[in-house]
Design a binder for these strands. Structure first.
Lengths: 190, 190
DNA sequence: TCGATGTGTTCGTCTTGACGAACGACTTCC
DNA sequence: GGAAGTCGTTCGTCAAGACGAACACATCGA
């Protein structure tokens, strides 16, 4: 992550605090219940969620397991304009061979991390993501199916091969319109 | 993620120990020097590398910054050079909803650029790339069709949704096996 | 109204991680 | 040879994290 802009003071306790509380609420569990499942004192959890304290790895690990959240996400959370490139009309750099075309969709700005996700979705209720931290940009390339992707207020319909990028610090959606919808999502953050 | 197989005992101290020692040696630094730069006691670092103790997040963070290693990498075991994740069996980080599954395929190491390509290919002669600069890693997620991808000597057959990562500083191939083969390629370089 | 249960907080105690000095083992160099 | 410089380890001390009980507060039902 994020080591780039080291807060020299150390790890982001506020981030840990926010992550713990957010994930706990997302799971719909009480503070006491999470503490019980994780095998830690609820007083400890209370202090962590209030930003006090510097948890041991063991403690944080137990919580990440209990909350089913990747360990790293508790410490370096996703720090959450819309660009569309339709399949076949890629404008930018192309490397062409007789049977091979590679289109550059997005070049990495300096000091960014990009995590690669595979998204599998079925038609149903829209999946709305809570806004991530400012600065996050999400890139989606649709593989199969059809989907509405992008800012919650104004999503874009994607066909296979289509590409869209949008800021992740706004509420955004991924709604499959067809069965077996598959997409590659690259989450970019500073 | 790695949490799937919870070692109930807690966080992998052995993994932390190994990671710290490996990364420190890779950097060619002495134990005392790393401790000094990280602002921790060398006795503490010595104990951590020996697998004793349960470091606080603050301590581990300082070390991850000093060693320029992503925080997660200190806690989670190193990935193999060539990694394959078949569609639907993503083992790593998952965020699941009723109609939505996002699998973290690859997390970005520090100081890297990742450029996103859309690859369109037709069956025909194999497309062999000359080796790129050392340190380059390529990630491929197959969207449609079928393809042989990876190290030239030992490529992997990918189906839609499959993911493979391989070092780009070796000769590698991308050979479509079916018409209308589409893939997302993320080129990662320091 | 009054208990009963749930929430999250605060407080005293004890355990434990982090520190720094001292240590033995090992090179280098005069 | 031995003085000086590394290396990583061990040990006693102190600060801080983790614990559990007690706490204030809200909600609910008899």
């Amino acid at each position: 992550m994020a080591h780039d802009e080291n807060s020299p003071g150390g790890p982001p306790r506020a981030v840990i605090a926010a992550s713990l509380q957010r994930e706990r609420r997302r799971a719909g569990l009480s503070l006491a219940e999470v503490a019980r499942r994780a095998g830690i004192a609820k007083s400890t959890l209370s202090q962590l969620e209030s930003g006090t304290g510097n948890p041991s790895v063991e403690t944080l690990w137990a919580l990440s397991v209990t909350l089913d959240v990747p360990f790293a996400q508790l410490v370096e959370p996703p720090r959450p304009r819309v660009q569309i490139i339709r399949a076949g009309e890629g404008p930018a750099f192309r490397a062409e061979r007789a049977d091979y075309v590679a289109t550059l969709l997005a070049s990495s700005p300096p000091h960014t991390r990009r995590d690669i996700y595979l998204v599998s979705a079925e038609p149903g209720t829209a999946r709305e993501s809570d806004p991530h931290m400012p600065g996050v940009v999400e890139h989606v390339v649709l593989s199969t199916g059809r989907a509405l992707v992008g800012i919650a207020e104004d999503p874009v319909e994607l066909a296979p091969g289509d590409y869209v990028a949008y800021p992740g610090d706004l509420a955004h959606v991924f709604r499959a319109l067809e069965p077996d919808t598959l997409a590659v999502l690259v989450s970019e953050h500073r």
